[in-house]
Amino acid sequence: MYPIRRAEKLADKIYLMDVEAPRTARSAEPGQFLIVKIDARGERIPLTICDYDRERGLVTIVFQVVGASTERMAALGVGDAFDTVVGPLGRPSEMLADPDIRQKKVLFVAGGVGTAPVYPQVKWLRAQGVAADVVIGARSADLLILQGEMEAVAGGVYIATNDGSAGVQGMVTDVVRDLVQRQGRRYDLCVAIGPMVMMKFTAQLTRELGIPTVVSLNPIMVDGTGMCGACRVSVGGQTRFACVDGPEFDGHLVDFDGAMKRQQMYRTEEGRALLRLREGKTHRGGCGHCGGED
């Protein structure tokens, strides 16, 4: 069992937990992910690693409630434990192996809960003496997470919200365009992590701006070790497996439209499980999702 040592609600439906998983904490590097399973009947849920403490054997995860399983996770607290924590999975961030990284200007674009996996990379860069710029996007101010933590390790932190309740009103791409075209900043590398559609439009913009771009994908996955092939994604016309070849890929080569369609696959099934959880056996259909009419 893997005990939960800290549990906090960061924003609406967004939670942070420190979990004791010594092997994962000892080997984790920025860019990698892990898989958790709540209990015997739970599903395997891939989550990016937000932070790690090798000495105390802790890994930090941040997740958003999107279905029945994450809703069950959100109900856990200190004193509870996960049945499974396995990791680190996937390849460490490519920048870790870049010998010239100290000379580079790096721009991060983080969307929503994607801010969590951006944090360890910015923190790692700070340890190398690089102060990266970070653009954080969220629907509104109350959904912003890790802003303070990010400000402590980044160069500049720029906020964009859909409703203008924090930072500028607009999309992250508006901020990126402003930084590069109006303020004349130059970047050698962009790392974008967030909702698929955000990564798609960020990659489109950076292609136009001529900035090499890395995106981190979090597709459907079962085992996470290279066995099931559920996480396959088309990159530059070739089928790749996010769990062993990724999760980072060249943002200018990823087939985002195909990837977005694949992400919808279990929407109905997830909806069903969520309804079962919320309404139990009392739910008798009529919702159009659960098939309770049958």
Binding site: D223, C228, G229, A230, V233, T239
Partner: peptide
Amino acid sequence: GLPKFMGIPGENGNGVFSANEYLT
């Protein structure tokens, strides 16, 4: 290890699974 696919069009569509995934 990694499941093999045929490399034919439509293989990354929704509702296409490796036997490994389906059975797992």
